[in-house]
Structure formats: structure tokens, C-alpha cells
Design a protein around this nucleic acid. Structure first.
Lengths: 245, 245
DNA sequence: GATATCAACTCATATATAAGACTATAAGTA
DNA sequence: TACTTATAGTCTTATATATGAGTTGATATC
């Protein structure tokens, strides 16, 4: 798991080199989500540094969202949670303020030849075969979002053999259980454009009206792109807040 | 500036109480943007703690954006910079990739009776008088954004006497120089809606078409609301990206 | 006068150590 | 059995100290 510190880089602080070494352990998969790290004392001893130095390296991993500390128990590789990601865009609470979880309906799954730009997003050769998944997300039977999802066929092959009742509301846990691919972070890009006919139909909208477009590129622990998706939703439900300083 | 630590709260760490004390100095204005903090050694001595404890308190201020360290010089109260805030929403680079800065045209400034919701945003009594400013932001003469800005009349009175040529492209430096009010952070809320007639005219759009709406609440160092503004812009130029994990 | 050196101050990195607080398990007791 | 207590392991807070590195201004030298 750990090795002695290389002194290849001329002068970077010890805590930074330890941070890089532990990050590499996580990215290469020798430490998986949920795994416990060695204790701070063990880390310090195995790298031959003082406890404070090891702790500062762990601080960096915590700040960047790679691991979580639990007082009295240990430090664990963090599993990202995207289960509330739609709540950023839509008011998903009932009259009592309780969180509502959108339901998912699988419309279609098939293998398609990848377009140039999607393959480019996914770091794949231009003509790679992709798995295309079409879904509708609903709250109280009201259609909220139409999603088209693209995955590398070679990495997600086993999704194709999945029985229909195995598809839950969330995809990322499925990716992990069925394909062993774990999403660590994602980049969402918002824009607005006219809705094509098929999404319009599932959203109960006339084709061509403006909808919010949420393009997402999801990446694994090794930063490699795993999934690209385009979600479209009604504008009148949409809002998004964020702080700047 | 500093005082001995109160032990009012039964058990919070020393570094946290020092953080709170220094934050209070900033929020109350005894430390202003650009001011240098006492050195880490001085802070440690004046609070009677070890240097590492004082440094951890400063770490918290740095992490939260209140101060900035400069190696060899000191630690300074940070001045927030909103001059590139539009670049988050629109591609503001020319063909060589150089940043373009939108120009501002002042359309109107007047005193208006505040509506209930705007006064509520600004933490003012329901019928307070407000200063209303109307502007257009342009890039290469192309209208990008129409802004309506609301300020408390009592706090921003001196803006009313400002000669037209004193208005630059950026408002926040003006607020500071003319009114002594400094913006520290802001919350932007994105939505989409139909454009009223007056903004439509200045954006070269037919009234009623959908536009991006950016509602901003800007706050000072003491967290009190200073400004509420509603900006509207063409949808076809708009996009916004962010990371989630 | 122009340049180089030094000294004092700053933050940055690192060590070694101690005691507190939280968790889980094992051992003891009623 | 059910409850309490001890213990070992973990992260957390805190001290005291030393050395490195960047900045600035004063001083010395050419």
C-alpha cells in the first residue's frame, strides 16, 4: 500500500508527497470507497514522518473530498453521493417540506454507434460502440426530466443483460454493483434550447419549445470519463442557486 | 483588536474561538479589506496560545475566503473580486482567447418605493425607498445583459449625486469608493422566464421570448444584504458549468 | 550613485510529545 | 442474561520548538 517517499521532484513538501502517494492509492483502486485508511500513526510511521505531517496530508484528501474522517473510528475512502443531485435544480419537497425522490422509468436501452463529439467526451475512439439509455424521471407521476445516457459498451456490457426489474431509480449504484465502475465526480453544464420531438413527447410538451439542458460528464476515481448524459426538463420548474465570493 | 478568549461557550476548541474573534474583527470593520493581520506569532502571544493553534485559526479564515496569506509579507483581509462574474455565464473571449470585459451603459437611476419582496430580500421595512439603477452590459456593442439593481436609499444616497462620467463598468468598486459599502459575497439564482418589454427593447429581442434571469443578492462583510439585482440575458449565449462530488 | 550584503520580519514546513474525546470490544459484575 | 466497566485503538486538540524560504529596508561597499 505505502512505499517510501520518492525524492524525484526536487523540492515539494513531505506532506504533499504523502498526499500524492495516498491519492494514487485511491485512484489506482488499491483503496476502494468505504475502505479504511491506516491510522494516522501508522501512516506517519510507514512514511517515516511525524504524526502532524501525516495528518496534514490527510487534511488535503479530506478537503478535496477523497476521504472522510470519523472520530474514534478511522478515515475512510469517500463514496460520492449523487442521489440528491436533481434537488439542486427543482423544488423537490412536498407541502410538509419532506424531500421527494424522483422515480425513474426506463424507456429504452440499445447499442448505438457513437457520434464524434460524444466519443470525444468519453475519451473513446471516434467510431466506438456506445450503450444508449433513455429514461424519464417523474415526481408524483409528473414528468420532470428526460435523460439520454451514453456509456462505453466495453466497460458497461453487462448492463445489456440486466432484467428490467433490476433497474432502480438510481443508475450509479447499478454501475458499481453490476459493472464495478464507481463515479467519483461529475461536471454539469447548463444551457437552454429547443426540445426535439421524442423528449417533448415524454415531457408532455409541444416539440420545439425551450427546455433546460443539463449535460453531465461523470468521472471515476481515476478521473477517466465514465458516462455522458443529456437531460432535458421543463423550464418553469427550474432554478439553480450558488454562492460566489 | 484582540482580547483574551471568553470561555462563555462551555467547550469549543481554542483555535475555533480565536477564529470567531478574528472573524468578528473583520465583520465589525476593525479590520478592513486590504488590512494586514498581526503576525501569527503576535496573534499567538496576544491570545496566549501556541503558534500552531493561532495558525489553525487563520487556516479557517483562509479556507472561508476572509483572508489571504502572502509568504514573507503577511496575512491580509481579502477583497472579493466580482469583475469576472459574467464570464461564468457567457463565453467572453475573442478569437485569440483573450478575456473580453463587458461595457456598461447607465440607462436610468431613480428613487422608487420598494416592493414587498425586494425590501424583504434587502432586510428593509416593507415601504422603504430604494435606489433603482438600470443598465445594459455590452460586448463589442452587442447587448449581453439587461440589469435592474436595487439599493437602500439611506445607505447609497451619495450615488444619486454622482456625475454620469463617474460611472465605470463595475459597480462594486463604486459602492466602496463613494458609499463605503464593500461587497464580500453574493448568491446568484438562475431561472428562465419571458422578457418584459423594456429589457426586451435593450436586448434587441421581441417582448415575451424566454431569457435567462440571474437574481443576485450581494452581502457585505457583516453579512447584511447590500444589493439585489435582476439581470436578463439572451439564452443562446448562455451556459453554466460546475462540479459536483 | 549604484550595487551587494545583511538583518529582521513574515509565513511555511516539520518534529516530538501530551492529553482529551469518541468508538468498539472484551471483561467483569449483578 | 443484562448491565457496567475497563481497555485499546482511533481521531482531535494543543504545546513548544526548530529550520526553511520569501520580502523588505537598512547598511556597507564599490
Amino acid at each position: 500500500m505505502q512505499a517510501n517517499l520518492q525524492q524525484d521532484e526536487p523540492r515539494s513538501p513531505r506532506y504533499y508527497r504523502i498526499y500524492q502517494a495516498m491519492l494514487s492509492d485511491i485512484q489506482q483502486g488499491s483503496l476502494k470507497p468505504g475502505d479504511v485508511l491506516p491510522s494516522e500513526m501508522h501512516i506517519a510511521q510507514s512514511y517515516g514522518v511525524a504524526p502532524g505531517t501525516a495528518r496534514k496530508a490527510i487534511d488535503m484528501l479530506v478537503d478535496r473530498g477523497w476521504v472522510e474522517r470519523q472520530h474514534g473510528k478511522g478515515t475512510f475512502v469517500r463514496r460520492a453521493d449523487f442521489s440528491h443531485s436533481l434537488a439542486r435544480f427543482f423544488r423537490l419537497t412536498d407541502r410538509e417540506g419532506v424531500q421527494l425522490h424522483p422515480k425513474s422509468e426506463l424507456l429504452d436501452i440499445r447499442v448505438v454507434p457513437g457520434t464524434t463529439d460524444i466519443c470525444h467526451h468519453l475519451d473513446l475512439p471516434d467510431d466506438s460502440e456506445l450503450i444508449q439509455i433513455e429514461r424519464v424521471r417523474r415526481v408524483d407521476e409528473m414528468p420532470l426530466l428526460h435523460e439520454v445516457i451514453y456509456l462505453s459498451r466495453t466497460r458497461f456490457q453487462s448492463l445489456l443483460n440486466l432484467p428490467p426489474d433490476a433497474w432502480g431509480d438510481l443508475l450509479y449504484p447499478l454501475y458499481e454493483q453490476v459493472c464495478g465502475e464507481v463515479v467519483f465526480r461529475a461536471t454539469d453544464t447548463l444551457s437552454v434550447g429547443p426540445v426535439p420531438e421524442s423528449p417533448a413527447h415524454h415531457l408532455d410538451l409541444p416539440p420545439g419549445v425551450q427546455v433546460i439542458e443539463i449535460a453531465r460528464l461523470a468521472r471515476g476515481y481515476d478521473e477517466r470519463p465514465l458516462e455522458w448524459r443529456l437531460s432535458r426538463g421543463r423550464l418553469d420548474w427550474f432554478h439553480y442557486s450558488f454562492d460566489i465570493r
